[in-house]
Amino acid sequence: MNRHLLSAADLNRDDALLVLDTAEELARLADRPIKKLPTLRGRTVVNLFFEDSTRTRTSFELAAKRLSADVINFSAKGSSVSKGESLKDTALTLEAMGADAVVVRHSASGAPHRLAHWIRGSVVNAGDGTHEHPTQALLDAFTMRQRLGRVEGLHVTIVGDVLHSRVARSNVLLLHTLGAEVTLVAPPTLLPVGVDAWPCDVSFDLDAVVPKSDVVMMLRVQRERMHGGFFPTTREYSRRYGLDARRMATLPDDAIVMHPGPMNRGVEIAAEVADSVRSTIVEQVANGVSVRMAVLYLLLGGGMAEAVESAA
């Protein structure tokens, strides 16, 4: 693996499988009386969150703590950032405090890449703007493997606000690496420019795609990023691109429904779908901790050597 995890494209097939296999072993920790490993004792992980998050921040925090790392939570509110400190100065401050890894979320796409040039430690992208969210893609792939036994050859349909979604981009890249076939379904206004260059298919007709899907991943409609009319009304969006019980009934028998959270019940996903047995939404959260432990272990667990050695 590289020193940083900035994009799902940083991971080749072997790296991605190593993360998933490692996460699978670490997931067993949840059944033990002591849910903690000493591996990252004395290492410091900084959660640098310039954007609101509950799930991802607590997930990374728990992951780092379960590996015995020291965790510093830093959010833009109530820090010197609100006094006008730049990303670079914030980074250098954290560096001076000896951060071994910085987990960063930022509203600007590319912020983690910039950060990676300024600090010596590892940088983990926990979501940058509308660009990428690689650990979410990893935990989604992990969840698919757990439920369906494999990722390779699966038909995965990603539905909704692709334009503003970092989850969609990371998932398309990672799932392609792992050999799944991805179809994006969205209104034309919510597809990014250049989507034809992505390694996936695009459709505008959800009803036609759902019956052929092993996995349907619903994306949140990100109203906070929408400055303009992307669709006429929420009701119309929901009717054409939302997953309700009627559409869910056309899914193949063992197909699953995923959502990265937070959900807008009644907009992109109906409540009865979110609470159905097909829904993996709660599992995704639990798996997030295991996958993030695996990422932190693989980035920080070794010395400076990057090669994966077999135990002697």
């Binding site: 693996m1 296999d21 670490l26 000493p38 591996t39 693989l298 667990g301 010395g303 135990a311």
Partner: peptide, 18 residues
């Protein structure tokens, strides 16, 4: 693997089954 004292001296290792 996660309890070894030489993790920092060597590259990261894949985990085995417990």
């Amino acid at each position: 693997t996660m309890y070894r004292d030489d993790l920092r001296m060597r590259g990261v290792r894949p985990l085995e089954e417990t």
